[in-house]
Amino acid sequence: MDKNFKETSKSGGIIWLFQRLSAVVLFVLLMAHYVTYHFIGHGVVKYVDIIEKMKAPWFNLIQFLFLLTALYHGINGIWMVAEDYMKKKGTRIFVFSVLVMLGVILMFVGMLTIFKAGAKL
């Protein structure tokens, strides 16, 4: 069918669906993050308390999933909006590559923090 559009792709639906699903997961993990970081403890939360918690694999697993979902949701959101303004294929590939690289770098730095911090003690 001739749509007479400059770009044709069916990928929009999957991106939209994953953005909604990641938003729901993100909400649950955000609550878990707040509760485990800020509300479980005795009085003022100190640096050592957090580092102590980071030794536990379940705690790190929640933080890892939180990091993964937040990065996916954020970068996918920027990409969805950026698509409004980009028509040239070259520009789209460049911006997409920058966003993926940014995601990988932030993921790496985040993982270092999560898995190395607890091991220091």
């Binding site: 069918m1 749509k3 559009f5 400059k6 770009e7 044709t8 792709s9 069916k10 990928s11 929009g12 639906g13 991106i15 939209w16 969805m80 909006v81 698509e83 409004d84």
Partner: peptide, 14 residues
């Protein structure tokens, strides 16, 4: 649905 399921169709609605 085939027509609006497009980059310049429904998915540009934010």
């Amino acid at each position: 649905m085939d027509i609006v399921n497009d980059k310049n169709g429904i998915w540009r609605c934010h």
